[in-house]
Amino acid sequence: MANEAFEPKLVGFLCNWCSYTGADLAGTARMTYAPNIRIIRVMCSGRVDPQFVLKAFIEGADGVLISGCHPGDCHYQEGNYNALRRHRLLSKMLEQFGIERERFRLEWVSAAEGVKFQQICDEFTEQIKKLGPLNLNGGKDEHREA
């Protein structure tokens, strides 16, 4: 079956201070996790413009992750709270476009939580595998079938 071979493409927007360092820790500690996620570093999760998420889905992402510092730990004081609010609103909007809520995740990963980052990547990949590919154009997107 096509689904068995399906390897989802995930985009992660990680804040520089906590989550990116956490992902770096997972790397330096030689932890293995699903290779499906591609990471884009931003200075703060508050920098993630909803357009980035939409752009990622349009370009062919099957899931998007935003990860920032734990509440209260933001390097810029409150950027992660802005990210939280935007995530809520954008999730509602994505559902109306037919993009399942599960495809757009917000997580808090601190610089010490390499293990948590590993778990999130594995879990998210697994979840999207179950959901299957995102067919934004009603399954008519031919180059994705290849």
Binding site: K9, I40, M43, Q51, F52, K55, A61
Partner: peptide
Amino acid sequence: QKHFRDSQIFAEIEGIF
């Protein structure tokens, strides 16, 4: 934002795919 312009990040997203 310098070095993190919208256009730069869009290009990054495109590059991924």
